[in-house]
């Protein structure tokens, strides 16, 4: 019985210890960096850059990939280190250039920028550039499944990610249809297009198709299917 009393006496301080007011803790871990994947984005972990929908005189451009940090902002610019994953990438070295990346002072986010160059090889082959974040003097890598990002580069038409938001208007994708839509609307990216304008873009495309078929006969896509809009 005495032993039970001793046990109870021993437990009492432990119970009251829980009542002690805790102090706010400040972030003290390593500051980390990762590719930011906004919710509902059409390009969470990859993007396609196509020169085919740009001006023919355009020789190079820059793609931006969003980054976020885990930790606190700093009073100085901080270096982000990244590299190409050799085994997974098949992009020719002359089709891209990795640009320096920094998180600016007092910022929690940045863009990683890659220069893409219009090379002849892009006409026939889509090049895949896998990027990987690495530890730097300022950041460690964080969020294990958000440390790699795929950039696809080509110079022929391919389905844009934003097509998904226009399926109701445009229907099944084909390169022929996409080319027609670009000619009819002047638009190759449909991100952020709201419903009323999407209907307008569809109608412009239908009108273009009607005029084209009146002059040339039925239009068939690269799969042999007649182009139509739902």
């Amino acid at each position: 019985m005495k032993r039970i009393h001793y046990i109870c006496l021993l437990l009492l301080p432990a119970v009251f210890a829980a009542c002690k007011k805790s102090e706010l803790q400040s972030f003290s871990d390593d500051v980390m960096i990762y590719f930011f994947k906004p919710r509902n984005t059409l390009t969470p972990d990859s993007l396609t850059y196509s020169f085919a929908v740009r001006d023919t005189a355009l020789r190079y451009d820059t793609v931006s990939i969003p980054l976020r940090i885990i930790g606190t902002a700093a009073e100085k610019d901080r270096e982000v280190r990244y590299s190409v994953i050799p085994g997974k990438s098949d992009a020719d070295a002359e089709s891209y250039a990795l640009l320096p990346a920094v998180v600016k002072a007092n910022e929690y986010a940045a863009n990683l920028e890659v220069k893409v160059l219009r090379t002849p090889g892009l006409k026939t082959r889509e090049m895949r550039l896998w990027l990987r974040l690495e530890n730097s003097g300022d950041f460690k890598t964080g969020v294990d499944d958000q440390l790699q990002y795929l950039v696809k580069i080509n110079d022929f038409l391919s389905m844009p990610a934003s097509w998904a938001s226009m399926v109701y208007q445009f229907g099944k994708y084909s390169n022929t249809k996409y080319d027609l839509i670009i000619k009819a609307t002047g638009r190759y990216d449909y991100s952020g297009v709201q419903f009323t304008e999407s209907e307008h873009l569809k109608q412009l495309s239908i009108n273009y198709l009607i005029a084209w078929e009146e002059a040339n006969g039925p239009l068939f896509d690269e799969n042999g299917e007649r182009v139509f809009f739902p």
Partner: peptide, 19 residues
């Protein structure tokens, strides 16, 4: 030309319905 008042987006009339 038509405009959908009930949907999201600018309430502007779209392209003509050709035919």
């Amino acid at each position: 030309h038509s405009v959908d008042y009930a949907y999201q987006g600018e309430k502007k009339y779209g392209a003509a319905k050709e035919g």
